[in-house]
Design a protein around this nucleic acid. Sequence first.
DNA 1: CATGAATGAGCCTTCATTCAT
DNA 2: GATGAATGAAGGCTCATTCAT
Lengths: 182, 182, 182, 182
Amino acid sequence: MAQLRADARRNRERILAAAEEVFAERGASASTEEVAARAGVAIGTVFRHFPTKDDLLAAIFKALLARLVSEAGELAGSGDPKTALFAFFTRVVEAAAARRTVAELLTGGGADLRLGGALRALDEPLGTLLRRAQEAGAVREDVRLEEVRALLAAASQAALLAGWTPELQDRTLEIIFRGCRP
Amino acid sequence: MAQLRADARRNRERILAAAEEVFAERGASASTEEVAARAGVAIGTVFRHFPTKDDLLAAIFKALLARLVSEAGELAGSGDPKTALFAFFTRVVEAAAARRTVAELLTGGGADLRLGGALRALDEPLGTLLRRAQEAGAVREDVRLEEVRALLAAASQAALLAGWTPELQDRTLEIIFRGCRP
Amino acid sequence: MAQLRADARRNRERILAAAEEVFAERGASASTEEVAARAGVAIGTVFRHFPTKDDLLAAIFKALLARLVSEAGELAGSGDPKTALFAFFTRVVEAAAARRTVAELLTGGGADLRLGGALRALDEPLGTLLRRAQEAGAVREDVRLEEVRALLAAASQAALLAGWTPELQDRTLEIIFRGCRP
Amino acid sequence: MAQLRADARRNRERILAAAEEVFAERGASASTEEVAARAGVAIGTVFRHFPTKDDLLAAIFKALLARLVSEAGELAGSGDPKTALFAFFTRVVEAAAARRTVAELLTGGGADLRLGGALRALDEPLGTLLRRAQEAGAVREDVRLEEVRALLAAASQAALLAGWTPELQDRTLEIIFRGCRP
DNA sequence: CATGAATGAGCCTTCATTCAT
DNA sequence: GATGAATGAAGGCTCATTCAT
């Protein structure tokens, strides 16, 4: 991956972009062929870059994860500790409503990710957000990272539901947040 | 279905049992062939009883739904209004933790069920439980059925997560319940 | 077949009747199960009377053939030699228009029939009709049984065509008949 | 289809050739698997070239139809009006004697073809041949395209008959032709 | 004998993956 | 490195035929 030819890198990125779109719409069960088509490359090219469909999924999940981690990190660094955790939570659920992949990631989509526990990468910034919120008195002391993680995954899944609307999202998350407050 | 021969009924039940197991483990995407194998039956037999894979899934989902509806009804009839809603909620999540199918049902698994809106069958008892809880002052007035439904589906999905334990379940549900209380 | 119990004979006939209907409508590729259903018996009963689907078809074809043979015989015995051949020809085509089976029979539907050459049973009365017609000067001398047979099969097939109407039938057969006249 | 790779075109043609053979022998109900086997190709390859069995059949029928249309056109353009219609008729029946598919085409084999009415493509040249023949006084005025079409289909079916020989063909067609003459 | 459930080979179709070009 | 054709293992489903009841 270090010494990629220019066109190879270009292709790799086009494939990733296409895959993100396709999997966001159709879920992880979408066909690799459609990814190739949307990327405007041949199927073989996809498999050259990602020897397995799982590899492709893992790459996407990893990128997604990285983005979430970084967003969480930013909020942890700069935001108001009292609201940052909930703001992040909301952002993730919003993202999930738009892309199936987010929910799938949080539920343990990419086998590799789950096995490698890479998902735990989110734990650090999430833990920080939680701790800060607790120190600021915005979240009860007895709420642990584990529950937050579970609730995040759960809410992201719920965002995929049929009648999901921004309004329903507000009301649902408000219940969860209220349950976290002292 | 009323006057089935003894061996036919036996097989029908074996198939349903096998299907419940298989789908509980592998989800609705498990193969009909595996169901047949686990039931100790030829593939044709499965299709004789359930002409379509969807029919088989629908049968299972319907049974599941009926069980949930009846449990909710019982709690609505006899239980303490203050706790019945939460008790039911907990039971569903517990069931989901044991069988993938519950979560899939709540998310809109069986095409027939979703289309027919049969899932709405759960709305009635659930609505009753909610109303009673609110009348008893155990749940805030502004919590609506829609949110409860969403949270139920969400929590059931979460129960499928990797590190899910009874203890985590308690802590997670407690947050949701607390968010519902006045 | 000699010492059949009363109910057995009754069933045998019901099956034959049903099969005639079903195959007439859907052709020889109709399913045995539908025959059983229409006969109001269980599938096993069909197979007890006709160990093979082909046996059932053969039975029907044989009955059909017998009917045709007898009709031809009657016409040969009583009718006006000048028109009897053409009258028979027309009757067969009319029958074919109403029942797929006639055409299939004439084309060699039932394997057994074709192999056993039972179809040749029609040759005798048909030959008589032809000879009489020729003796009466209604058909050219150089027309042989073989051609008549072929034309009969052909016209019967044609009767199954999409746009077939009585009018078209008249016009088409008139051409064939004209070709046969001196 | 224009810029197919060499091996792909080779396979496409092998498949078509094999299909033509197989369907010619066994009729349209022959299995795709056998086509693949005879073509020396995996089953997936057949479906890559023809996404559906019907597509494959349609391709064959279309090619067949095109061949017939072009032959008719040639005869209409160059041949002796007095004999061209009969010559074409004979050629079609000859082809049918060799390949089941011709008869099936004329009878309305390929779903797509029948629905799309593509078969009517044959009507134009056939109509021309008929008109020319009538103008040349070789065919009676009251013979219409419809009858010719029906007789063509009928004779093609007949060509599939068991005892069909070139000699029988001549005698049979001669009767039909004679019936058409003034 | 009748019943109808069970069987299982066979069909069409999809899709991840490989490999010749 | 890219291409896209070929592969073949499943998967869902049908139906003639068998056999326990």
